[in-house]
Computed example of a mutant assay.
Amino acid sequence: MKKVLLLLITLLSGNAFAQTTEPTYAEKLGYPKGKKILIIHVDDVGMSYESNQGAIKAIREGVANSLSVMMPCGWVPGFVHYWKENKDIDAGLHLTMTSEWKDYRWGPLAGKNQVKGLTDPEGALWRGVADVVKNASPDEVETEIRAQLERARTMGFEPTHLDSHMGTLFATPEFLERYLKVGMQEKIPVMFPGGHNTAIRGEEKMIAERFEMTQKVGKQLWAAGLPVLDDLENSSYGWKGPENGDKSEKGLQKYKTAKYIEAIGKLKPGLTMVIMHCTIHTEVFPHISDSWPTREGDFLAMIDPELRKYIEKEGIVLTTWREAMQRRQKVK
């Protein structure tokens, strides 16, 4: 899977960033100063039955507290119908411009004739981000973003936020501009780290020029009346699993829980979104994707009492995109 924020990947390290004494966006939103404020977020809801159940259980039985939905996928109705009876769940749109799997695929909601550049020879969305960049125009990307939002609203589902599947909307400045534009016009918070960015700039090896760009975008989003992330933790998909190869539930849970505790421990104070993918175990999902161990591991970590104990012991504050937006609306 492509990492989010592909626009920010470089070959240089980010050692030479000036330290700032400005308040974090979390502080501006009224969260306690010096605290880690986390949105623990599950991607890829609606992709499959397993994805729906994994996300719901991670929230209901675990410490996850937010999710986003892939509107072009077949199991969207299954989640939205559940959400209509459980609207306390913080649910956004995982804006989807790719269809990456071999045998399980989906097409654009705008229709092939409207977004030909987003459509591959099979009539589905392209498998990879590079193909989208090569073939799709910014206008087509915006058309599909709006089609996915319209589908959600047609179903009675008003999203709490927007983010980007496989980071495609961060792949070019033009795509990013359309993503931000829709969020600001529609007054829907967008996933974008515009604060100190300590975790994401280390992961993406962000140079000063790119870091400055994130700061400008953060200020733009804030000025538009939207909440802004201070940082993004997006490394979990790359965690390869126990060195001994143990893919049992116990083995995956122990490994993933330890990795999340380690990653959260390194975060700096501020509002951080922690990204993951949760699925329950079935015989079917491995036929969709060989990523099942990391996805099941994420789910098992979220329901692990040890992770909850760690969060409570460290005084970490959990929040949602809905709450962040409510707080932003009160700030003048």
Score class of each variant (00 low, 15 high):
Val182Tyr: 00
Leu11Ser: 14
Gly34Pro: 05
Lys256Ile: 10
Phe157Ser: 05
Val141Phe: 01
Met70Ser: 00
Thr96Met: 10
His196Lys: 14
Thr272Trp: 10
Arg178Trp: 02
Thr272Val: 14
Ser99Asn: 09
Glu142Ser: 10
Lys2Trp: 14
Ala324Val: 13
Lys33Cys: 09
Ala64Phe: 05
Lys256Cys: 05
Val132His: 10
Pro159Asp: 06
Ser236Gln: 13
Gly183Trp: 05
Leu93His: 11
Tyr237Gly: 15
Ser235His: 11
Val76Asn: 03
Ala26Glu: 05
Gly30Leu: 00
Lys313Cys: 06
Asn113Ile: 11
Met213Lys: 14
Lys3Gly: 06
Asp304Val: 11
His81Tyr: 01
Arg322Gly: 10
Ile9Arg: 15
Asp120Ile: 07
Gly54Cys: 08
Phe192Asp: 02
Gly202Met: 14
Gln215Leu: 14
Ala55Gly: 08
Gly218Glu: 11
Glu243Cys: 03
Ile39Trp: 04
Gly117Val: 05
Ile311Cys: 09
Gly74His: 02
Trp106His: 02
Met155Tyr: 08
Glu22Gly: 05
Val63Met: 01
Lys134Asp: 11
Met213Leu: 15
Leu271Pro: 04
Trp75Arg: 00
Thr279Ala: 00
Ala110His: 00
Asn15Tyr: 15
Lys57Thr: 05
Pro286Phe: 04
Glu249Pro: 13
Leu162Ile: 08
Arg328Met: 08
Trp101Gly: 00
Pro227Ser: 02
Lys2Met: 11
Ser66Tyr: 03
Glu61Pro: 08
Gln53Val: 11
Phe211Met: 12
Gly128Arg: 15
Gly54Asn: 07
Lys330Arg: 10
Met276Trp: 11
Gly111Trp: 04
Glu158Leu: 07
Val217Asn: 07
Phe299Ser: 09
Met47Asn: 03
Gly117Asn: 01
Arg127Phe: 00
Thr21Glu: 14
